[in-house]
Amino acid sequence: MQYLVQLLISGLAIGAIYGLIAMGFALIYKSTGLVNFAQGEMTMIVAYIAWSISTSVDGNPFIVAIGAIIAAVALGLVVERVVMRPMLGEPVFATVMVTIGLAVILRSSINFIWDAYPHDLDIGFGRGILRAGGIGIRTGQIAVIATLLALLAAIWAFFRYSKFGVAMRAVAADDRTALLMGISAPRVHAAAWAASSVIAGIAGVFFAISYDLSPAMFQLGLKAFPATILGGLDAVLGSGVGGLLIGITENLAGGYLGSGMKEVAGFLMIIVVLMVRPFGIFGERDIERV
């Protein structure tokens, strides 16, 4: 029993990180219809910026958090304005490839600006271990699960009640009609990129606190793919939940079937789920007309 509980807790902790990145994917897909292949890279860049800030201000968690959020917003806005906006109206496929080009640039910038050594993001928080009945969890892992849940609630409320949230939903549903209703699509896109960058950045910072900071961190993006597919590419909240499901599945597979199964468990799961629901668990079915 203790074994199972420990597996579930660890699964939730890593799943929360996948879930955050997956929400970043879904936010962009929902408002722009694109899959951002540079999501993992953006996660990594924000984490590195947070590390740079932490080394210069002696790891004060508040300054690091505020600095990282500002940096993430700036990164999202710059990417949207400089790289993505000019591609408006071009074929979706070409635009998706642009994000792959962006991923190459961001990935290389790590070794260019920083270096290839693993680093330690220490903001004096998240390293402590809580123990209860032989089960251990780090405070940082509790914090990331809590952050994910809080964000899920906040985003639900945002889309449901705020004017801008409704505008984003309108653009996602039908951008031309939304335009006619006086909603600025570019502004909605910019907001989506900035928000996606912040959410991914939060995941990156938590990952760096619990594990390490290295130029291989971009692979997290690939790991979060199954989460967002499972939840539904256009379901922001569903993707967050999808992350938790993938995290738990991976750990249960690793714990009971052996470590070889761990990394493919998530992928096997999405194949099975997609065969039943081809648009993800929480995704919306497209109605096609000829």
């Binding site: 597996l7 990952f207 690793g254 714990g255 052996g258 470590s259 761990k262 990394e263 493919v264």
Partner: peptide
């Protein structure tokens, strides 16, 4: 005796098995 996939970062289930 465990075998992990290159690029794996989350070793919680593997180390739990080791402990067990």
């Amino acid at each position: 005796s465990g075998n992990y996939k290159k690029g794996q970062r989350d070793f919680s289930s593997d180390m739990l098995q080791l402990k067990d």
